[in-house]
């Protein structure tokens, strides 16, 4: 969880346009890579926002709404950049509201329904541990815009991880009931976590250019944070592989995403272009 881990950049950062002028073949992978980032924060942000008005305590309700707001803020930056790199005149809103499930590139972990507050917090923690490790790398991206967005988001995600890990420890090492619920949440979510650190050809191309890290390189940092926190929370790390539920980052989703999008996209689908 150290905030001061720095990774030496491969090369001085350059604006995305300059990078693409030198390597135009990176445009398509980069759009996908940016959508993977923006879709992860969008879908998780939407899930967390579902708690608004339903939190178990007023403070928790407000905290979850604030967390959702940060994640949606990150989404605007990532999808905004994705749309700009794509260069087809689409906006961040177009990408969020006018794509169908198969075009979303978020990991499956973030589309799993919230369940109880225990599962919601456990999911946030498992995600935050990865998100934090990722952003620590991205601040040294070879693309200036990505490094700048990451530097902004990292401050907020540092706060997210601190809070979610604290709650996992309190509830895991809490009452018999809270312990059982946190363990059940962990057991249910565990098979989805491996996808976060599972790379493909797109990742490899972007990693080679120093734009995004190889997902596998984040595994040790994620593992260290997760195991340390779970031990403190007196929760047992599930046995067995954690990478069996994969495919979201390639557009193969669970049935849950369609229901989520039906709600999230309703207004823009029914009244295209509607503005506040």
């Amino acid at each position: 969880m150290s905030a001061d881990a720095t990774i030496a950049p491969l090369a001085p950062a350059r604006p995305v346009d300059d990078l693409l002028a030198a390597a135009p073949e990176l445009r398509a992978p980069l759009v996908t890579g940016l959508c993977r980032l923006g879709d992860a924060t969008l879908i998780l942000g939407h899930r967390v926002s579902e708690w608004c008005g339903h939190g178990p305590a007023l403070e928790e309700d407000i905290a979850l709404a604030n967390t959702a707001l940060d994640l949606i803020g990150h989404t605007q930056m990532w999808l905004g950049l994705a749309a700009q790199v794509e260069g087809r005149g689409r906006s961040a809103d177009d990408l969020a509201y006018h794509r169908d499930a198969m075009h979303f590139r978020n990991p499956l972990l973030v589309e799993v329904p919230n369940g109880d507050i225990g599962r919601t917090l456990m999911r946030l923690f498992l995600f935050d541990a990865w998100h934090h490790a990722l952003l620590e790398r991205l601040v040294s991206s070879s693309a200036t815009e990505i490094a700048e967005i990451a530097a902004k988001a990292l401050k907020e995600v540092h706060y997210h991880l601190d809070r979610s890990s604290d709650l996992v420890v309190r509830l895991g090492d809490g009452s018999e009931e809270s312990h059982a619920r946190m363990q059940a949440a962990l057991d249910l979510l565990w098979p989805y976590t491996g996808e976060l650190c599972f790379g493909d050809d797109t990742d490899a191309a972007l990693a080679e250019a120093g734009i995004l890290p190889e997902p596998g390189d984040l595994r040790s940092a994620w593992d260290a944070t997760v195991r340390e926190t779970l031990a403190e929370a007196t929760l047992a790390v599930p046995e067995g592989r954690n990478d069996v539920q994969r495919g979201g980052r390639q557009g193969r989703h669970t049935e849950h995403l369609g229901y989520l999008l039906a709600e999230m996209q309703f207004l823009q689908r029914a009244y295209p272009g509607a503005e506040w």
Binding site: I62, A65, N66, Y159
Partner: peptide, 13 residues
Amino acid sequence: MVSRHGSTPCKAA
């Protein structure tokens, strides 16, 4: 501290 988050994103309770 009562809560890490307050009435706006920039405040805690």
